[in-house]
């Protein structure tokens, strides 16, 4: 049982990085970006291929992140320069990435990196157990990322990106190019998602072209769980809540699997959870007026 919980926590921390990426598009930029379903396996594929070629795993992860940024830039250019709706731009990038990911992995749907060095190995070599070293690497990375983002979104550039997600007309009236801000935001987001993919692949010792399927819904589920359970006013707190949300999501999944849910039903379960969570704000309102009218009738 402890092993199951530790496994869930460690995986949750790796997925937390992806959740932070989803937050940047979905909440900060107000764009539902589906390219992440392609950039997650992109990061995994790039990192694994480089590691099989004996590249340093840290360098491989960094390159994977940069590839994610490039993919995000493509989505941004499709959306801003070709004026394709954001949702569709993301779908186009995601679809194109399937072929690209296959090519990166040498026209094979998966690449294994068994017994190769990974970002988790140095700690394991010090005698730490696999889950614990994952937790340490995941936690340090996640904290580092939210600290950098906290600083970045406080700068002039970061403020301009936040404002773009808020009111584009006002932002243009202040002399800011909203196209550039959207492209930048999508690049940061997809870079983080690819980094998350690189870590996840190194943890499971393989990259799979299908591993991105449903990832946007997992990201949204973690994001909403974080926001609902750890409601925070400050920006740092909100970023930290994303990490906690990703952890709680993994714990829930570990639990329902433990209680005998068919793993194939997981995606249905997650989709229903997200649908309910997205409905929650309206649902609360309906419930409130409903109970009010009930009380009135009783009186």
């Amino acid at each position: 049982m402890t092993q199951v919980l530790l496994g869930a926590v460690s995986l949750g921390l790796l997925w937390a990085i992806m959740t932070i990426g989803v937050y940047i598009t979905y909440r900060v930029l107000d764009i539902a970006d589906l390219s992440v379903e392609g950039t997650l396996p992109l990061g995994a594929a790039v990192a694994c291929m480089l590691i099989t070629k004996d590249t340093n795993p840290y360098l491989a992860s960094l390159i994977a992140m940069l590839c994610g940024c490039a993919a995000g830039m493509v989505t941004g250019l499709l959306h801003t320069k070709l004026k394709i709706p954001a949702l569709l731009s993301g779908i186009l990038t995601m679809t194109a990435l399937y072929s690209i990911n296959m090519r990166i992995m040498g026209n094979s749907p998966s690449v294994y990196i068994l017994r190769k060095p990974t970002v988790f190995k140095p700690l394991q070599n010090l005698g730490l157990d696999a889950n614990l070293s994952m937790i340490i690497v995941g936690f340090v990375c996640a904290m580092l990322i939210i600290s950098i983002l906290y600083w970045f979104f406080g700068t002039e550039l970061g403020s301009a990106i936040r404002a773009t997600g808020n009111n584009q007309r006002m932002v243009r009236a202040q002399g800011i190019n909203t196209d550039t801000m959207k492209i930048l935001g999508l690049m940061i987001s997809n870079g983080l998602v690819a980094l998350s993919g690189a870590f996840i692949a190194q943890n499971q010792s393989f990259a799979d072209v299908q591993m991105g399927t449903g990832s946007i819904v997992i990201g949204l589920a973690s994001l909403i769980i974080g926001e609902v359970l750890f409601n925070s006013r400050g920006f740092y707190g909100r970023l930290f809540a994303l990490i906690l949300g990703a952890l709680v999501y993994r714990l829930i999944i570990a639990m329902v699997l433990k209680f005998g849910m068919n793993p194939n039903d997981l995606k249905l379960f997650t989709a229903i959870t997200v649908a309910i969570a997205l409905w929650l704000p309206q649902g609360k309102e309906i419930l409130r007026t409903f109970t009010k009218s009930l009380k009135k009738e009783a009186a």
Binding site: F152, G154, T155, E156, L157, G158, S159, A160, Q174, G175, I176
Partner: peptide, 12 residues
């Protein structure tokens, strides 16, 4: 900061 480049200096 209207009309100025947005940099990595503090927003406020």
């Amino acid at each position: 900061r209207r009309g100025r480049m947005r940099t990595l200096r503090w927003g406020v």
